[in-house]
Design a binder for these strands. Structure first.
Lengths: 222, 222
DNA sequence: ACCTGAACACCGTTCAAGT
DNA sequence: ACCTGAACACCGTTCAAGT
């Protein structure tokens, strides 16, 4: 697969290699492992060389992030024939799945809101679906912004905390130490927790889409 | 303020002082500034001394996090007479506000789900409200888990990225470079973006609460 | 002209040495 | 017995020196 947005400037080959290697590191070892030293070593180079292609670590990360949006765009499911609800669900799930596939990638999106070319294309596509389905400009803007934050917020929380075995053990132990009189509600629902991550995500997503459908009715009637 | 010598158990005063100082640093300089060296220097001490009170940086952060839950608990609004919708809204807003007041604090909650005593009390209180209002155990568990993730997900994204002036300038510049033919939907809603953060948060929260009210009806009728 | 080793000022963690 | 300076193995960034 070729790059969607090519710079066509000096250092482009090296530039390519750096981004590819960076994503590989994020995939295999998480966001914390993406250090300039680690990255340079993977390419048998030194950190100083990286500064020939990128102004700073932050700038490099911004381009890594846009790569992820390019990948999302390339593997985007077909939503043309679907209703807006189903389209929203698929787009949100697709973004969520992509971020989860690249382990700690979601954490890279925190610092700065994605502004790269591929992120812009994705926003355009999403807004167009809403506007073509009777959403007013203010409602479409709100719906898109909130849903995008929702997906990213969940993806961040599910991104890196790999050692669920150890965490779940601690959680279970803490629950067992609770006494009935002080924590009746917690113990009453204890069999339901913790929820599978995907289920938690889908549950909240459906709540929001349902709420949007109600707002849309009033929006259109007005 | 001078350092007091503890008469009773060893390190207890120092333990207190460390947590207080840590929160002060997070408030004033953000989560990134909370380094052990920075923390030790604030107390005219060395990093090694910190390891006398805390097993690791991670353990220290876990206790800082539970301090925030304690603060939330202490300033919790009265929700006894309110309906569950209004109670949910107030609890979610309160958690969001508390996390925002301590600038980068939300980022400290990512690594491990809060397990401290004060976090447990807060969960008990929230679950009890849902269960006392006709929610079944499965629905209450889902509602609580999803809302808690929602609040934290938003708080994280609004936590540290302080330089909104520079960011907004970049965003505006990027928007101006767009051409109408390629980005019609984006340009159509451009006047609506970016939304104020609180509005975005409230918008999504209301969507979820509305969706929950529908699920609750079926839940109770069953 | 292009590249990079080495330095600088940081980071979390450990432990031998000091009191 | 208690504390901590100093070391260790890292980090992002810079620049003089090498090719």
């Amino acid at each position: 697969m070729s790059t969607r947005v090519s710079p066509g400037r000096p250092f482009s080959v090296s530039h390519e290699l750096i981004l590819t290697t960076a994503i590989q590191i994020v995939d295999e070892e998480g966001a914390d492992a993406l250090t300039l030293r680690r990255l340079a070593k993977s390419m048998n180079s030194g950190t100083a060389t990286l500064y020939r292609n990128f102004e700073s670590r932050e700038a490099l990360i911004a381009q890594v992030v846009d790569r992820l949006f390019a990948e999302m765009e390339a593997s985007m499911p077909e939503v043309a024939g679907l209703g807006w609800k189903q389209a929203c669900r698929m787009l949100a799930n697709h973004m969520f799945t992509t971020l989860r596939r690249h382990r700690g990638a979601a954490q890279l999106l925190i610092k700065a809101i994605p502004n790269g070319p591929n992120a812009m294309i994705q926003r355009e596509r999403s807004l167009a679906i809403l506007l073509n389905n009777g959403f007013s400009a203010p409602l479409a803007a709100r719906a898109y912004a909130t849903l995008a934050r929702y997906v990213l917020g969940f993806a961040i929380q599910f991104s890196d905390n790999g050692a669920s075995g150890e965490d779940d053990a601690k959680q279970a132990e803490a629950f067992h130490r609770l006494d009935w009189s002080a924590f009746p509600a917690t113990l009453f629902v204890i069999g339901e927790l913790p929820l599978p991550l995907d289920e938690e995500f889908s549950f909240g997503l459906d709540l929001m889409i349902y709420g949007l459908s109600e707002l849309r009715k009033n929006d259109s009637n007005k």
